[in-house]
Design a protein around this nucleic acid. Sequence first.
RNA 1: CGGGAUGUGGCUCAGUCCGGUAGAGCACUGCGUUCGGGACGCAGGGGUCGGAGGUUCAAAUCCUCUCAUCCCGACCA
Length: 577
Amino acid sequence: MRFSRMYIPTLKEDPTEAEVISHKLMLRAGMIRRLAAGIYAYLPLGLMAVRNVERIVREEMNRAGAQELLLPGVQPAELWQESGRWEQYGRELLRFTDRHQREFCLGPTHEEVITDLVRHEIRSYRQLPLNLYQIQTKFRDEIRPRFGLMRGREFIMKDGYSFDVDDRMAEKSYHVMFEAYDRIFKRCGLNFRAVEADSGAIGGSFSHEFVVLAKSGEDAIATCSGCSYAANLEKAERACPVSKAVNDELPAMEKVATPGCGSIEEVCAFLQLEPEMTIKSMVYESDRGLHLVVVNGARQVSETKLKALLGVPWIALAEEDGIAKAFGARAGSLGPVGAGVEVIADQEVGLMPPLVCGANKDGFHLRQVVYGRDFTADKIGDVVEVRAGDACPRCGAPMELVRGIEVGHIFKLGTKYSKALSATFLDQDGKEKLMVMGCYGIGIGRTVAAAIEQNHDEQGMMLPYALAPFKVALLCLDTKNEEVVAYCDQLYRQLQERGIETLYDDRNERPGIKFKDADLIGMPLRLTVGRKSYARGILEVKKRRSPESMEIPVQDLSQLWHVIEEMAADDQGISSL
RNA sequence: CGGGAUGUGGCUCAGUCCGGUAGAGCACUGCGUUCGGGACGCAGGGGUCGGAGGUUCAAAUCCUCUCAUCCCGACCA
């Protein structure tokens, strides 16, 4: 493609609307433009990158035995009412009515539609397993869209769904998708981890997120330094410290005045303690009422884990009034001893030496509090967030926390949707059974953004070869010189004949502009032809990622073809597995 | 939805506190000089200052309301 004929509106300065690097660079490189909050147009260059991800996704999904289809974006309310999600989904689901006052929504995901399709057609175990996917625009009316393509409201997603005869086969399908995802993100040239994730209220038995490691990522993940364990912070577990013997000779619990001390810090400063020696008491509210959650004073409650342990759909910190009524004390002076509500204790609390906690009386705390002697819990479990340095639950080595961008997520769904929508089949014994489902998503635009987050420098993008819209930038620096132009034209033809996607900068612009644009949009290889270098009979070849360029004689380009083949090898190497 | 910020030619911003009839750089058009890392000179075109209402002789500037966008927290690919 000739640059002079392609619509690539590059920007010299960072647009104010963008904060993160991928968003800035995609706007500057003329890949995307914003239409409304979280809604973007893909310009030619941006679409080419998107198509490259899609191509890899299609190849790997098809290879894994999945079949592509395309479902409607507009979905009738009845299906969502049938699954119960019309009420559950909340405001992210954009609803509207047609001219006949029938209710519809814009599809944020397609479990209902695909299950509806399959339940009408599949009757026999002989027709299973089935794995169907699509690549399509989704709409989720996000509370807070941000960071360009990273969290849009309208976004391109690959969503796939598997249907199996039983749990065991469904797990096999899940595993096949896991492997496919692993290959997809490798081929995209990304540095990523597959991490264990919270499967949420979906009730699935397991779930993995594919997370691209990047400082700007919205997700925190815990990874083990000693083994392959990696998990979303929401889900990450830790090995608990060894139990400390508690004997009867411990001094009895006593009440101490702590005037004006509310927070853990204040209490610790007043009593000269470390936060580890205290119990933090938090009151949460759910549809089952109030819960007093007690954890080590140095730790944070994980609301996701708490929700899972309680088995409730939502929790929130209780209001002051409710706390005062239930405890007769304010939030800074609460504790599990004599509490009038259900007590949930983190697993660690029972293993700790005598502790300090609130006395359920304003201005007083208790010390020498021992679990089992002075109080017990109604429920014990893992309800705290993992911290850097915590021991890995698998091998005990210290874990570290890193940030990442979730680009893919796979779930074993089980029978949630097949049950709600009665998607059944007859097994070998002629018995009717529910199909066991899985679902598998990839954010296509987000994958492009993540690749940029991970591959850039001050000058611009350094897209992985597989994703780059063009593999080669050919810069003709002197468009007035007929010889130079003739040579560039000829070189351009040679590149085309070899099937190498080339952006030929034939614009009548100064060299500086061409260099800046080439670096900005970050094509893997740059070929430069100027009057002087041409006169010397050499072609300047520079990799975007390398600071030095090499000079190749114009008469013998074999070295050039070799370099390009090498760069392409990663993608093709994996795809020919 | 709570908290914070910003809206001024296509882009990046100044001007707003202290009211007096809109400015710079880039981009664009023409001419000339330049030409290996976002050139320079000259001459041009382009803005009802997000919108509505109000105060005032006079509003980008002060007041009220509203809309949009961005950032920080709960959702998610």
